[in-house]
Design a binder for these strands. Structure first.
Ligand SMILES: [Mn+2]
Ligand SMILES: [Mn+2]
Ligand SMILES: [Zn+2]
Ligand SMILES: [Zn+2]
Lengths: 149, 149
DNA sequence: AAAGTATTGAAACAAAATTTCAATAAGGTA
DNA sequence: TACCTTATTGAAATTTTGTTTCAATACTTT
């Protein structure tokens, strides 16, 4: 086991400091809430959760903070659906792929060693530096297939 | 070699008919233009190409036609960037994955047998019906890595 | 404490995508 | 062919997502 470099809070604070930015309470509250959501989420859901907890953080701040969290590798864009992006926190989770049902919209996660292999080999062969990979299967889940969907 | 079921035009016409819709000249012109674009494209680019050829087809019609082309498997959403979706025609092309450079925005295609294997095995194991798969590597290309990007 | 600068929320703005609606055209029937 | 029914179209309005502006404020350094 490798020792993890620290909590998401530490990582984010260090990242923010290293960029010469300011570690504000709004940024930390957004980060904390994202790591309380153990599911895929969108900006609206995050905003409403914060509001319901009494935080008065604007959507503008959420939209400004998300790219920072993505840049430092704590959060990922997962998929674009219904006209907006869906995210997830990834720090502390193993890489995984997604199956999305086009009918009921259910999203399932799964792991497969080979996906990282493919990416690693591509990076090796073409000399690119990988920031992230994304593998999605879109189709109809066992419940929905054959139905009217 | 399997005999292909027909040209993209035939496939689209049959699909439209089977759905009880009407095969209009606008829909065919959009389809033809998409299969003239041998690259990833977005709605605006497609619209301008049509206009430059003298076709007066509205963006509304493009936005209405794209989901039909996707539904019948001729076209795919490739990636969402700069606030809008990017597409490609896929009929007649082997499945492929994409590398996208986060700095110069270059997009490279590559094939890997294993990706379809992973999807096939997932489908088998969980009884889902695959409509499409998508594999992306995001990172920095050999030119951009190390640079200011 | 003062100066300098990044961040914030609110509102204005920009852009993407969808919807509305009257005119038109496709496709079926006589 | 002429006629009928109904889906489709373009243009404009609308909705929604995401970005930018800007004055107030908070952080950081001197
Ligand atoms: Mn996930
Ligand atoms: Mn491609
Ligand atoms: Zn389903
Ligand atoms: Zn590059």
């Amino acid at each position: 086991m490798e020792k993890p470099p620290g909590s998401e809070i530490e990582i984010f604070r260090d990242f923010i400091k290293k960029k010469g930015l300011r570690y504000t309470s709004e940024r930390e509250i957004i980060l904390r809430e994202i790591f309380n959501i153990h599911d895929h989420f969108d900006v609206d859901e995050l905003y409403l959760r914060l509001r319901n907890k009494g935080h008065r953080i604007s959507k503008a701040s959420i939209y400004r903070t998300l790219p920072l969290l993505i840049e430092c590798g704590l959060v990922q864009e997962v998929y674009h659906e219904d006209g907006h992006m869906h995210y997830e926190h990834i720090y502390g989770h193993e890489p995984h792929a997604h199956f999305r049902c086009l009918s009921c919209r259910r999203v399932e996660e799964f792991k497969d060693q080979r996906l990282e292999e493919v990416a690693r080999e591509y990076a090796e062969k073409y000399g690119v530096e990988i920031k992230m990979t994304r593998f999605e299967i879109l189709g109809y889940c066992s419940t929905c297939r054959g139905g009217e969907g």
